[in-house]
């Protein structure tokens, strides 16, 4: 699963999917994660990078990440 090619993310976290016309907002950590995903980072890599930079337990972050990615899927922003 990765982020669709048609999905563009701006610096302010505005997301526009040119294949569907849908738009979304990301908070800044959400934007970082989407960028990492777009660059092909694996789950473990994302977790490692975030945990290094932010004050958060890996277990909690992994839960949040799972939920976040389920929303990306729900919003049809991912593809096989």
């Amino acid at each position: 699963m990765r982020i669709k090619k048609s999905v563009a993310v701006s610096e302010n976290g505005f997301v526009f999917d040119s294949s569907t016309g849908d738009s979304f907002n990301l908070n800044s950590i959400g934007r970082e994660i989407v960028e990492l995903m777009k660059n092909g980072s694996e789950q473990s890599e994302i977790t490692q990078k975030i945990v290094e930079r932010y004050e958060v337990e890996p277990a909690i972050f992994e839960q949040n990440l799972m939920d976040f990615q389920s929303m990306l899927k729900q919003f049809n922003l991912m593809e096989e």
């Binding site: 302010n12 505005f14 526009f16 738009s23 907002n25």
Partner: peptide
């Protein structure tokens, strides 16, 4: 353009 929409919704 979508950028106008972005400005009003994000900012």
């Amino acid at each position: 353009d979508i950028s106008l929409f972005e400005s009003i919704t994000v900012k």
